[in-house]
């Protein structure tokens, strides 16, 4: 673990990513203290320019942009995290079963995975949220439903390779149960790619969420970055900052998570670096 951290911290961009990410997390935690009032409440005149009373200005209705960004951080991070967890759970179960058992189980599960990879994922997510009516839960489910195939394919690949490893055969040879082999022998050996994929997936999930709420499919009860950009686009000509700052928040957060994910990857696979 110590050595892992050492390898990770040698990667400057990964550390920078981690710092940005920590800042975003802190912002999310501190939002209720920094901006105690509801981010939807009208606090001033509409379209006040940045630094003139409000740090990042106000939007078309006179809501505080900075407060919206602070409160939106929590929503983005939580949706990203939970959608990823659900997608991982589905993906690991399906990938593990396909890779371990092979044969017709593998065939059937992989056809299913390919089907989900074929259908246009964002459009599918839009449909799901529209049908289930927009809410945090429906958004999490929709993102998970379109994201799991990546995990399933990865886990299947790892399982397929590890399944043929001799140490797994030795376990079969002493009569170990399938469940025990899957969970205690194979899964721990493919954790590192799963963690890396998972962390990159949080970033993608945040992007999908922002796209959905930009189109007006966000949870109407919570402030989110995508919604702020969407609401500001009508005043693009006169008040660029209403769109610009929430977009930068998304960009920085996603960038930070990607950097951390890549740092993890390099730290897990020290041989691949410096090539």
């Amino acid at each position: 673990m110590k050595e892992f951290w050492k390898r990770f911290s040698r990667n400057r961009s990964a550390v920078a990513g981690l710092l940005i990410l920590i800042a975003v997390i802190l912002l999310a935690i501190l939002a209720p203290i920094l901006y105690p009032e509801d981010p939807f409440s009208l606090v001033g005149l509409p379209m006040v320019e940045p630094f003139e009373g409000f740090l990042l200005g106000t939007d078309i209705l006179g809501r505080n942009v900075a407060a919206g960004i602070a409160h939106g951080a929590k929503v983005s991070l939580l949706i990203g995290l939970f959608a990823t967890l659900v997608a991982m759970l589905i993906g690991i179960l399906i990938g593990a079963a396909a890779g371990y058992y092979g044969g017709w189980i593998d065939d059937a599960l992989m056809r299913l995975t390919e089907l989900f990879q074929t259908i246009p994922s964002f459009l599918f997510a839009i449909l799901l949220v529209a049908i289930m009516t927009p809410s945090i839960e429906s958004i999490v489910i929709a993102i998970a439903v379109v994201s799991w195939p990546t995990v399933a394919r990865l886990v299947r690949g790892e399982f397929l390779a590890l399944r043929k490893r001799e140490f797994v055969e030795a376990c079969v040879g002493v009569g170990m149960s399938d469940w025990r082999i899957i969970t205690l022998q194979i899964l721990p050996n493919c954790l590192s790619p799963i963690i890396v994929t998972g962390s990159l997936m949080v970033a993608t999930a945040i992007l999908i969420e922002s796209g959905l709420s930009f189109l007006g499919l966000g949870d109407p009860n919570v402030m989110s970055w995508g919604f702020m950009v969407g609401a500001g686009r009508t005043v693009l000509r006169s008040a660029w900052w209403v769109c610009a700052f929430p977009g930068i928040a998304i960009l920085l957060t996603v960038l930070a998570i990607n950097l951390v994910g890549e740092g993890l990857n390099d730290a897990f696979n020290p041989r691949l670096r410096n090539r």
């Binding site: 140490f167 055969e169 040879g173």
Partner: peptide, 22 residues
């Protein structure tokens, strides 16, 4: 199969792949 498995055991080829590194 379990009672029979213990009577027949295997030694493998690849000394690197045959032991779980974890």
């Amino acid at each position: 199969m379990r009672p029979y498995r213990k009577r027949v055991q295997m030694v493998f080829q690849d000394p690197y792949a045959s032991l779980n590194p974890r």
